[in-house]
């Protein structure tokens, strides 16, 4: 749950989807996070992003627009 670990994991996912053809890579990164990350992990990453997103790759940042962050 440490932000640096979440950032590393999100960047890994973004690195993978960046290699995939198409123009919807950011949506696909977000879909992966929505499908496989527990809400508190997404919330933590989202919070980190909103506070500058240190260390996040460009595609990981773009994906944050599509992340589903729970209300609580």
């Amino acid at each position: 749950m440490q932000p640096d670990k979440l950032v590393m994991m999100a960047n890994q996912i973004a690195t993978y989807f960046a290699t995939q053809p198409g123009t919807d890579q950011a949506e696909r990164v977000a879909a992966h996070l929505n499908d496989f990350w527990e809400p508190r992990m997404r919330a933590k990453l989202s919070h980190h992003y909103e506070n500058g997103g240190t260390g996040m790759s460009q595609l990981a940042r773009e994906a944050m627009a599509f992340i589903r962050v729970p209300a609580d």
């Binding site: 749950m1 670990k5 527990e38 992990m41």
Partner: peptide, 18 residues
């Protein structure tokens, strides 16, 4: 309807206190 924690995530969350 939301995914849960994986083993490494459980351990991370434990260290964090949640």
């Amino acid at each position: 309807n939301e995914p849960g924690l994986r083993i490494p995530n459980m351990l991370d969350a434990a260290v964090e206190g949640t």
